[in-house]
């Protein structure tokens, strides 16, 4: 035990006026930069699925799809809101979302479709990742990388909310919070 109170290293009176203002100014500047980055909304992507409708992959399947097939799956779900979650096995924040999305799939059942799209990844690693979480909602593998390009993915994970009319309603870049996910699903169902 030292028995001594901590030393006074930051007494305002012992510091020059310049040094006294450096920390608050640096913190403020950092907060402004990070705050702008945090509040920035992703640029609007115009994406509308077209083509012949295709069914969702069955539970346990993990098909490699082309851009046309992906669009076909979306067209096949017209009339039901679809939450598309683009993920990769190397993306740590994607781990956060998987149980949340699984819970959403179980909670909303047939009312909402949750569709995972593994992209920019190896099929083996993505499959292993899926098995690890025991997900039951449908997932596909973006084999050509074109799905990612068409959706304008700039970060992993990214979540897209398509309304029942097939129109893209919202994009959430980065990890989606439980509150935001619940809000966008409730909004899409309204």
């Amino acid at each position: 035990m030292s028995g001594q109170p901590p030393e006074d290293r930051t007494s305002p009176s012992s510091r020059s006026p310049f040094r006294r203002w450096v920390t608050p100014i640096v913190v403020l500047a950092l907060a402004v930069v990070v705050g702008i980055a945090a509040l920035r909304e992703p640029s609007t992507v115009t994406f509308e699925a077209s083509g012949p409708p295709l069914p969702l992959p069955a539970e346990g399947q993990f098909p490699a799809v082309t851009q046309q097939e992906f669009e076909g799956i979306l067209v096949g779900q017209l009339g039901t809101p679809v939450i598309v979650n683009v993920w990769a096995s190397w993306c740590a924040p994607c781990r956060t979302e998987m149980p949340l999305l699984q819970r959403a799939a179980e909670t909303y059942g047939d009312q909402v479709v949750i569709l995972g799209v593994a992209s920019n990844d190896s099929p083996e690693a993505a499959r292993k990742f899926l098995d690890e979480f025991g997900l039951t909602y449908p997932n596909v593998f973006d084999v050509s990388g074109k799905v990612r390009v068409d959706l304008g993915v700039t970060a992993y994970p990214t979540t897209y909310v398509f309304g029942a009319d097939g129109r893209l309603q919202a994009t959430v870049t980065g990890g989606i919070s439980e509150q935001r996910l619940a809000a966008v699903i409730e909004g899409a169902l309204r």
Binding site: G35, A38, L39, E41, V161, Q169, A170, T171, V172, I176, S177, E178, Q179, R180, A182, A183, V184, E186, G187, R190
Partner: peptide
């Protein structure tokens, strides 16, 4: 929570409107 997108509560006349929604939600956070 404003910066983490985690403030949202039930719909209310005053509050926050998440991107992509037209509904206002009570900022519970």
């Amino acid at each position: 929570c404003l910066f983490r997108d985690g403030c949202y509560g039930p719909t209310s006349p005053v509050g926050l409107t998440p991107n992509g929604l037209s509904t206002t939600m009570l900022p519970v956070g």
